[in-house]
Amino acid sequence: MIDVGTILGLVLLVCALLAIAQRRLAAGDDAFVKAIASELPQTQCAQCGYPGCRPYAEALVGGAAIDLCPPGGEATVQKLAELLPHNPRASAGLATSPAMVARIDEARCIGCYLCIEACPVDAIVGAPKYMHTVLRDACTGCELCLPPCPVDCIVMERP
């Protein structure tokens, strides 16, 4: 009986120590999401079906498919595959398109401020009823400003 008792005692002791340690070393899940998010191109273009890069990162930690991000292309998929070996791949090929930048045709812009509302990364400057323009190196090419524009004066082009 003494032998079983000793082993049980030992196990309980170790579990107690681990419980104390557990509280002090909070699991770094949040840090992991940030690490995954930093691998994504941060275009916030929602082409992956999630409303932005951070939500997609959270979904990835939850086990989402790793090849939903066209702007990131194959390089990002490789990185994510390394960090998340168990996550599935949704489709065989990934439709990657060359990086594009938006440009507002200033002749037809009516200053309606809708595209500025839509731009996830504040890459368009302007005020209501004033001329709007796209900051070329701030724009990530997510094309979210195209649908809301009433006069369709925004064009995508190579940087």
Partner: peptide, 17 residues
Amino acid sequence: QLTEMYVKATSRVLYQL
């Protein structure tokens, strides 16, 4: 188990790798 908790807390990416 102690090591695993420590690594998970300090560098989560390494923990995953």
